[in-house]
Design a protein around this nucleic acid. Structure first.
Lengths: 337, 337
DNA sequence: TTGTACGCGTTATCAT
DNA sequence: ATGATAACGCGTACAA
């Protein structure tokens, strides 16, 4: 592939002059600019951004590390990040950890080797040692959706605590008292927040928390499916289920269907995160939807600001409110005592 | 950030020796290897892959250019590509064109500047000039989901023609005769194939194609919504609608709902591409699902093979069969003549 | 086994 | 306004 020197030679100038033309410097005569441009076109010259990054010490690339891009929540977050990055002339590298800390570590190494300018990450655990590499090498970092104990970094997350409270409040208003929680792992802050909101709402309404209705697993469909089996075995059976995220809710639905239970006639169901498409046919699932696109936007904005203007300075925190969307999955009124 | 020379200095060896240790060359004494490793750990040295790529002339990065990662079809394709790339130690850059040729051109420029080793692309148009840059610079390329007239490259796509035939055959079996087609733009080969399949099936069953039941727009929900309005105005009204992809189907559903029409009681609906999650509650939409993950896998495999072993050689083509999934959206039997 | 010299393509710095 | 020189961090070729 032709390089800047080939162009310079053809145009009869020094390489640096070509560089100036490429980068739109104004200290170039219109005449030479044209000669250079002609040579560029003629040779189909394309600048090598690897060399440029090596020299300039910035790759104009950021990374987004999430659990699974297949989850519509993360897909939407990703578009928010990408669009914002693009507008600011940054590229995004997308990484899926599948909630596996080992994969996360691999990606972090890889990204540092590639000298990404910054990282947006939804960590697999709340252990800051997992992110030690970023601290060591001082790679700018924004935590998204999940906090990490004692890790000093910008943060963007949805208010899961409030989201959970809104949902449980709603169920209690409808008369539910035996509400099962199918949660993700307590090693993830958002799972913790959702459990806290669940407990607080129950207590605020004078309903005792029954520990045998609280289930912990992963944020995946399979886990929701499995734990729902256990929840349904409780006697008396819960009248409502709170799924801690959208994938868990799908697992719950699957289990309920197999058990021959209809939502909302036989049992109520609510969850955090919307499930797009599910509402297309028939407004169905009551959810506390997190503003996924905005979360991505915010995170990218915070990161890019730190990369450009204030590289150092106080850590910032953006907490976005969830939106309660009431649909028929709670069977309004039907369960009222 | 520390570089290979810092490490060499600390370990008391030449930079090349450090390089050898990093790359696991066996021509290094265990003793020096340890000294070097110690220096690496002590300095938190991380190799710079930009420099490495510049030198080795390969970035170990491929690009995946699609219309919109928000579409679960593309999300799944993307995972197929990413997983396969990862296994082979390649990274993937994801790009969204939003079906906009200008964005596509921008990305192509950008990717070539970044010296990606290869590109997997679902082109916005069937015009090969749009991809001229790749040809010029001889960047290995795999077309996915869509063909381009006269563009010589490996290809992976679903058999849309057959998919459409299966769906229309099914509708006709159920007694439907007035079947509207809500299609994407004819500038995209898959839209063309779907229209062809639609026509062939009708003709094979002795049903005349009524041109005023054929609608062309984009592959987006809004387009499906808008065109359905027109389709419903036909007299007599079609008894079934064939949506050319999943997003169009969502738009159709939306329009039908607003028109107070129930699927399948009042009108039947089928489409190409599954809509995940939609089937979680209640098996609903009859679809011809394309094997999205496998398409991604195949494309990545073809590309990587070309990057490694046979860089040149015959163009290869992989055509994957769609899977007909019959659900209740057709109202089996209800429309039988 | 280890090292020297140079090149990958670009830009920063300083000079003219 | 333009250029010469060196440097970014690494790996190849060849020498010791």
């Amino acid at each position: 592939m032709t390089n800047i020197r080939d162009v310079a030679r053809l145009a009869g100038v020094a390489p640096i002059t070509v560089s100036r033309v490429i980068n739109g410097a104004d200290s170039v005569t219109e005449d030479t600019r044209q000669r250079v441009q002609q040579a560029i076109d003629q040779l189909h010259y394309v600048p090598n951004s690897l060399a440029r990054s090596l020299r300039s010490r910035q790759s104009r690339t950021i990374a987004l590390i999430v659990s699974d891009i297949t989850n519509p929540f993360w897909t939407t977050v990703a578009r928010g990040v990408e669009d914002t990055a693009s507008e600011n002339d940054y590229r995004t590298m997308l990484c899926n950890t599948d909630e596996n800390p080992a994969k996360e570590t691999n990606y972090l190494n890889l990204l540092v080797e590639r000298r990404v300018d910054g990282v947006i990450i939804a960590p697999t655990t709340r252990d800051k040692e997992q992110l030690a590499l970023l601290k060591q090498l001082q790679v700018p970092c924004v935590l998204i959706d999940r906090r990490v104990d004692g890790f000093k970094a910008d943060q963007v997350y949805g208010d899961s605590h409030t989201g959970a409270r809104l949902l449980i409040d709603h169920l209690i208003d409808l008369g539910h008292r035996r509400i099962a929680l199918i949660n993700g792992p307590s090693t993830i802050s958002s799972a913790q927040d959702r459990a806290d909101g669940y407990r607080e709402s129950l207590e605020a309404h004078g309903v005792a928390v029954e520990e045998d209705l609280v289930f912990q697993g992963s944020f995946k469909q399979e886990s929701g499916y499995r734990l729902t089996g256990q929840a349904l075995a409780r006697d008396p059976r819960p009248t409502a289920i709170f799924a801690a995220n959208n994938f868990i809710a799908l697992g719950v639905l699957q289990a309920l269907q197999e058990a021959g239970l209809c939502v909302p006639e036989d049992i109520a169901l609510v969850c955090i995160d919307d499930v797009p498409y599910l509402s297309a046919i028939d407004p169905f699932l009551t959810v506390a939807a997190q503003p996924a696109y905005e979360m991505g936007e915010s995170a990218a904005r915070l990161l890019i600001e730190r990369l450009t203007t204030h590289r150092t300075g106080k850590v910032r925190e953006v907490v976005l409110a969830p939106q309660l969307i009431i649909r028929r999955s709670c069977g309004q009124g039907q369960h009222t005592a």
